[in-house]
């Protein structure tokens, strides 16, 4: 029984984190049909930005809740600058090209951004563990959990609700949904598709950076952290159905729970459990759990 509770808690913690990291990827794919392989780098840059900002702040201030504001601020700044830069400098010029070429261009960006980060921050890991230890621990089923993990969970839920609210309850969201369903028709109806694209990509970049900024206190931020998460986030959004926000949430939870179950019940499977789940889901739901409606061309 306590094992089941542990699996549920660990799985939910991991799933929430995965959702936070992956939701930007699925948003960008849904609206722009871009599989952004450099998503992991945006995450990494968010983490670096937060670690650097926290480092400066805590060098002269005692630990406090201001840390959270700094993390959010650093992530938004990094996402905004980089998102705009990449959209304007690269992705705009690939408008109308096939999905695979664009994905490949983002792979080139992955290589470039990896080295740019190496130039800025070097090989030495950046640590910013202060916020991680700020909130103390609590006990569930006799086990100690760090409260920061629950903060990330709360943030993930908040971000999810916010996206849902924007998409369904605001004019911007309705325009976005129109572009998701039919780009040409939306353009014909007078929607500024280009502006929607810029806004979406920047939002995706900010979400990735936010995921990174709140991961920074848990891990040392070092070269390669972006590459480590990118494939897992792919798995999450593919399981959920590419471009679906609820799909990303369910996919993240499924992956989180599966991984926690493997760790508690059969640890050697940890290395491929994510891929096994993905293959399993796709066997029965070839387009993921929440597929986007596709037009059948005759």
């Amino acid at each position: 029984m306590s094992t089941l509770i542990a699996i549920a808690v660990d799985g939910a913690i991991h799933g929430a984190w995965l959702f936070l990291v992956a939701v930007g990827l699925t948003l960008v794919f849904g609206v722009m049909k871009i599989l952004n392989i450099a998503h992991g780098n945006l995450y990494a840059i968010g983490a670096y930005a937060a670690a650097t900002a926290l480092g400066y702040w805590f060098a002269s201030h005692p630990p406090s809740a201001a840390a959270l504001a700094i993390q959010v601020g650093a992530a938004l700044a990094a996402g905004l600058v980089l998102g705009l830069l990449l959209e304007v400098a690269v992705l705009r010029h690939l408008h109308g090209r096939d999905e695979v070429s664009v994905a490949l261009a983002t792979y080139a960006l992955l290589l470039i951004l990896d080295d740019v980060m190496l130039m800025i921050w070097g090989t030495d890991p950046q640590s910013a563990a202060a916020p991680y230890l700020l909130l103390g621990a609590s006990r569930i089923a006799g086990m100690r959990f760090n409260n920061y993990e629950f903060l990330v969970m709360g943030l993930a839920i908040l971000v999810g609700l916010l996206i849902w609210w924007v998409l369904t309850r605001t004019g911007t969201g309705r325009r976005l949904t129109a572009v998701i369903h039919d780009r040409e028709m939306a353009a014909a109806m007078g929607i500024n598709v280009r502006a929607v694209h810029v806004a979406t990509f920047v939002a995706g970049a900010c979400l990735a950076a936010l995921g990174g900024a709140f991961t920074a206190p848990m891990i040392p931020v070092a070269p390669g952290i972006g590459a480590e998460i990118i494939v897992v986030t792919f798995a999450v959004v593919v399981i959920g159905g590419m471009g679906s926000i609820p799909g990303a949430a369910v996919g993240a939870l499924v992956v989180g729970l599966a991984r926690a179950a493997a760790v508690h019940l059969y640890p050697p499977a940890e290395v491929f459990i994510v891929y096994a789940v993905m293959a399993g889901v796709l066997c029965f739901r070839p387009n993921g759990l929440f597929p986007q409606a596709a037009v059948r061309r005759i």
């Binding site: 599989l35 792919f234 798995a235 593919v238 590419m242 096994a276 993905m278 293959a279 796709l282 387009n287």
Partner: peptide
């Protein structure tokens, strides 16, 4: 994309 990802899995 699903062809791509399943083969990767």
């Amino acid at each position: 994309i699903f062809f791509a990802m399943l083969s990767m899995a």
